[in-house]
């Protein structure tokens, strides 16, 4: 296998399998969702609730739902799901984003299509990328602030609870991308409402992600939520600075525009809060064992020089 393809092919398989099984969207086992064993598991990555009985929902959905409606119970419903969320993030970090997210797959497929068509990607300028990365934290803050004030009886927003209780649902491309196919496949009744705003964001999503690699990951509030705990996860991206030739390949191929992996020269831990663990840098780094990934301190993936691979023929 050519060097450039060794990681993303495996990742593609993971993404497809997780789309089918973990996120349980297209072939969701509807009745399974009633089981008390999985009732409190909310996925850290997906940002929507795909259908009522799905075994797994998204934590962002759950937070909005609980904050808007359970002021009187002191949001006690959130305790266990948040605890499970923390465990899941510490376990996998943002591996959720690049390997298991239902929105990651279409983004990667769009990039693949763009590459096949020979259209160059648009690289966000550093400042624009930083601003977008900040947007996702702002989005998360607004979502929490809004839903929190919805749930408080004296806030004056109490009446909106019936109209616009879960604001992010209105925008999420997941909604239009995955709920419509389910209706088409007959998995959901045709009466399921898909907000028209999310169709608009989906068109925006498709257009932007075609030209900019992993555009949605810059602004995704679920990513922001994970980013808060991500650097403490068991999965870590590490760098052996003594092997680095400063060639800058890691920065150029990074879909999230992270420069810190390149500029770090002292510490070996280079996991950045914006890193989605796609390991594109590990795949492309031309030095042996310069970049590597550890799980619980054990190295399981390292960069390899071209010495070890067949070079692609044209």
């Amino acid at each position: 296998m050519a060097r450039e393809q060794r990681i993303w092919r495996i990742r593609l398989v993971f993404q497809i399998v997780s789309l089918i099984l973990v996120n349980s969207m297209i072939f969701g086992v509807i009745s399974f969702g009633e089981s008390p064993l999985v009732r409190d598991i909310y996925l850290p990555n997906a940002t929507t609730k795909f259908f009522n009985n799905a075994p797994t929902h998204s934590i962002v959905y759950k937070i909005q739902d609980t904050l808007a409606s359970e002021f009187d119970t002191f949001y006690s419903d959130l305790v266990i799901p948040l605890f499970i969320f923390l465990v899941l993030v510490v376990l996998l970090g943002r591996v959720w984003c690049a390997w298991l997210c239902p929105l990651g797959l279409p983004q990667d497929l769009l990039s693949l299509l763009r590459k096949k068509l020979g259209i160059p990607a648009y690289h966000l300028p550093r400042a624009a990328g930083q601003a977008l990365h900040a947007t996702k934290y702002l989005a998360l803050f607004i979502i929490i602030f809004y839903t929190l004030s919805l749930g408080i009886p004296g806030s004056g927003l109490f009446e909106f609870r019936t109209g616009l209780a879960i604001p992010y649902e209105q925008l999420d491309p997941n909604r239009a991308l995955y709920v419509y196919p389910q209706i088409a496949l007959g998995l959901l009744p045709p009466s399921t409402i898909v907000p028209w705003l999310s169709i608009l964001t989906t068109i925006f999503f498709l257009a932007m992600c075609f030209k900019i690699r992993r555009f949605w990951c810059y602004i995704c509030p679920a990513g922001a939520l994970q980013g808060l705990f991500h650097r403490q996860a068991l999965f870590q991206l590490k760098k052996d600075s003594s092997k680095c030739t400063s060639c800058g390949v890691c920065t150029r191929v990074c879909p999230m525009g992270i420069q810190e992996v390149y500029s770090e020269r002292k510490k070996d831990k280079v996991t950045h809060r914006n890193c989605t663990h796609c390991y594109k840098c590990v795949e492309c780094c031309p030095e042996d064992d310069c970049l590597y990934v550890t799980f619980l301190g054990r190295r399981f993936l390292s960069s390899k020089s071209m010495e070890h691979f067949d070079i692609e023929e044209t």
């Binding site: 450039e4 020979g118 160059p120 030739t245 060639c247 031309p286």
Partner: peptide, 13 residues
């Protein structure tokens, strides 16, 4: 010693 590494084969890249 150093190779040209590119993940995309567009002209600009």
């Amino acid at each position: 010693y150093d190779p040209v590494v590119t993940d995309e084969w567009t002209e600009r890249a």
